[in-house]
C-alpha cells in the first residue's frame, strides 16, 4: 500500500486534470518511486486512488519504456546507443560495462548496485556518447569517465 503522503500526492496530481485517467502517467511515476518498480501491487494502489480500472492502469504503464516492470538495482544506468552515440563508441562502453561491472543490457549487478537499460536517443547527441544515471546526464563518455562516475554511486 501507498503511504499517506504518496496518496495525497496522487490526489493532488489527480486534481490537476479534468479526468482521473489523465493523471495516470504521473501517478505511475509516483508508484514506481514508492514501490521501486511497478509490481501488481503498485498498479492496484494507483487504480485504487485514481479510480481507474487496474487492467487499464497496467496496460498504460506497459506501453512506456521508462516504467520498470521488474525489480531494479539501486542506481539505473540508462545508456544511449542510438546512431549518434553508437558511431562515437557507445557499443564499446556497453562492452566495458559488461566486462568491468558484469552488467548486461536489462540486467542488474549481483550486489544490486546498478541496473543497465539501453536507451533510444536521450537528446545528448551533441555530447555523445551519453547516459543518464538515475536522473542525471553524463556526457562525452569514455571508459575512464564511466569508472569515475560510477564510483560515486553506492
Amino acid at each position: 500500500m501507498l503511504n499517506e503522503t504518496a496518496i495525497k500526492e496522487l490526489q493532488e496530481i489527480r486534481s490537476k486534470y479534468p479526468s482521473a485517467r489523465s493523471a495516470l502517467l504521473p501517478a505511475i511515476y509516483v508508484a514506481q518511486r514508492e514501490f521501486g518498480w511497478l509490481s501488481e501491487e503498485a498498479y492496484e494502489a494507483v487504480s485504487e486512488v485514481l479510480g481507474v480500472p487496474k487492467a487499464i492502469a497496467r496496460g498504460v504503464g506497459a506501453f512506456y519504456a521508462m516504467y520498470k516492470h521488474r525489480p531494479m538495482g539501486r542506481n539505473i544506468i540508462q545508456l544511449c546507443t542510438n546512431v549518434s552515440c553508437m558511431i562515437l563508441g557507445a557499443e564499446r562502453l556497453a562492452d566495458y560495462l559488461k566486462s568491468h561491472y558484469g552488467l548486461v543490457p536489462g540486467g542488474t549487478t549481483e550486489d544490486g548496485r546498478f541496473s543497465l537499460v539501453i536507451m533510444e536517443c536521450i537528446g545528448a547527441c551533441g555530447t555523445a556518447p551519453a547516459m543518464l544515471v538515475n536522473d542525471e546526464f553524463y556526457e562525452n563518455l569514455s571508459e575512464q569517465y564511466i569508472e569515475e562516475i560510477l564510483a560515486k554511486f553506492t
Partner: peptide, 24 residues
C-alpha cells in the same frame, strides 16, 4: 472497455510485443 465497460483486459507492451492480458 468500450462496450462491456469491465476494462478487465488491456494491450500490454507495444510494437511487436503487443499482446492482450487481463490484469494479473
Amino acid at each position: 472497455e468500450g462496450v462491456q465497460g469491465a476494462s478487465a483486459i488491456a494491450v500490454m507492451e507495444r510494437g511487436g510485443h503487443s499482446h492482450i492480458e487481463p490484469f494479473s
